[in-house]
Amino acid sequence: MIKNFTLGQYFNTASVIHKLDSRFKLVEIIALIVFIFLAPNFVGIGILSAAVLLVILLSKVPVTMYLRNLKPIIAIIILTALLNIFYVSGGTVLFSWWIFTVTSEGLLKAAFMATRIVLMILISSVLTYTTTPTELTDAIESLLSPLRFIGLGEAVHTLAMMMTIALRFIPTLTDETDKIMSAQKARGADMENGGIFKRLKALMPILIPLLFSSVRRANELAEAMDCRCYTGGKGRTRMKKLSPTFYDFIAIIFTVVICASIIFLRIF
């Protein structure tokens, strides 16, 4: 099972969405998520649904891939919907039995909330499907870079470097965990049976060697970084400069228009 673990969900179709500058894309998607929760009524949600649908189609990632991401949260969506159906009162009573009363208002509210959650998942999937983890790290480093004015420049660089190294070593350590598990199983370790405490205890012979080897790896990696003249973020250049294109210009306008229309709906 551990082998199927994939890093990120990047799905390259080289669409316009993939080509967007990751810094702007991140901000735009966060803005859309915020406005999904600010949308006051069905008109607003309708506008946002149309926007999300358009972005999904532009990304050229198969729609089934997006639906797959919805599967794990179906339970949450249903639960939210049910709570709304039974708790919201008002409107005409459609159905009543024992303590349960379903009103038209409740149904509408349930649909509203469910759509919100679905939209939020879909739009965040757009980000993960169209942006590599490296691009995301770069975007975060770049977006946080104004912090250097309050003396946190090195901290931002360190954070980004840590994220890069973590991403780099996830597959390596997953492989290693696999090997250690096989080695312990070959020595008769039983990891599948017994209660929760027994199974937690069985994890120790895996975690300890993994921890030791990670520390050793970290040491060697630090030496290798030293050898390549790494001295922190200061004086460092980057091969790839993030640079906005014409598409980014359109994407910004698109996002601003959507957000403005939600604000308009809230005020009037």
């Binding site: 590599t132 780099r168 390596t172 790896r217 990696l221």
Partner: peptide
């Protein structure tokens, strides 16, 4: 080799050294 590669993409890792030296992109 596993413990000398720092970045998640080959070409970015090769660029790591020159980037540290502050060379033009």
């Amino acid at each position: 080799p596993d413990n000398q590669i720092i970045c998640t993409i080959v070409e970015e890792d090769v660029a790591f050294g020159p980037e540290n030296l502050g060379i033009e992109p």
